[in-house]
């Protein structure tokens, strides 16, 4: 395979670079557009670099529209959902991998069987349930259904299976209780798996759309994607500058986090095979 000729290798570099530019262009266009005025965004032909860069779009998002609230809603929901998954899924993952108890096999089969159930199947009855709990249009209504996920349990179980059993036996001989063993011996060893699960869960929650669209029904509970989708299809359809700035607000935080943790991220995807 290494006998790819020098000339064809240069062609490959050119091809890959063109592809890279194509892939990145929408982001550059978005960020540059967020500093343009509405009038400039309507110009034909379009400008690439902002002629009169302005922060007006961003100030309007946070003063006239409630993007501050949406941002904090998205953050709260994503943080709570991530914390819930890290705690509960690691507990179950450990129990399934290391402890012998009746029903263990049935629970694992249940988790495997529901790994692939799509959100579109459950959202109608889930809405009826959440409505009867009085949680429609509340933040708990947004995060409660997502505090645990079969995928998280599966991931943690696989990781715990790779740990030596002797660790637990030794801790028991030392007289440690079962919960102390989990929290003080096992949990610290799970850090790499917790990081992967944490990143994936946070992203999934931050970008989640269908459920927040169903449950959030007012300015106080909208998350960023819901607010942006409703603005972009409603009366603000023509507010190009605002929409570009809104998209930037949704994308930029995860982009920064991604670029910082990208190594762990990509390893996580490769090992788990799930986005």
């Amino acid at each position: 395979m290494n006998e790819v000729g020098t000339r064809s290798r240069w062609w490959l570099y050119v091809l890959l670079t063109v592809a890279l530019v194509l892939v990145i262009t929408p982001f550059a266009w978005m960020v540059l557009g967020s500093f343009k005025t509405n009038a400039e965004l309507r110009q034909i032909p379009p400008t690439w670099w902002p002629q009169n860069p302005t922060l007006d779009n961003f100030t309007q998002l946070f003063s006239r529209l409630s993007f501050g609230t949406y941002f904090s809603n998205s953050t709260i929901v994503a943080v709570v959902v991530t914390a819930g998954n890290l705690l509960f899924c690691s507990m179950v993952g450990y129990a399934l991998a290391m402890l012998r108890f009746r029903g263990r096999k049935i629970i694992f089969a249940l988790i495997l069987g529901t790994l692939m159930i799509p959100g579109v199947v459950t959202f109608v009855p889930l809405f009826v349930l959440v409505a009867n709990l009085g949680l429609v249009d509340t933040l708990p209504g947004l995060f409660l259904p997502f505090l645990v996920a079969p995928f998280g349990v599966f991931l943690m179980r696989q990781f715990v299976l790779g740990l030596p059993r002797d660790l637990v036996e030794a801790a028991r001989i030392d007289g440690a209780g079962e919960f102390r063993i989990f929290f003080q011996v096992i949990l610290p060893l799970l850090t790499p798996a917790l990081a992967t699960l944490g990143i994936l869960t946070f992203l999934g929650s931050w970008n989640n759309f269908l459920w927040p669209l169903v449950v959030a029904q007012s300015n106080d509970t909208y998350t960023l994607p819901v607010a942006l989708a409703l603005y972009s299809t409603g009366q603000n359809e023509q507010q190009y500058g605002l929409l570009m700035a809104g998209a930037t607000i949704v994308v930029l935080p995860v982009l920064v986090v991604f670029l910082i943790f990208q190594r762990r991220f990509i390893q996580g995807i490769a090992t788990t095979g799930i986005k």
Partner: peptide, 21 residues
Amino acid sequence: LGFYTPVITSIVAVAVVWRFL
């Protein structure tokens, strides 16, 4: 890294941008 970047972004946000593109 570059090819993977779109995956992490909100579909809603990039759909808004693509509408302009």
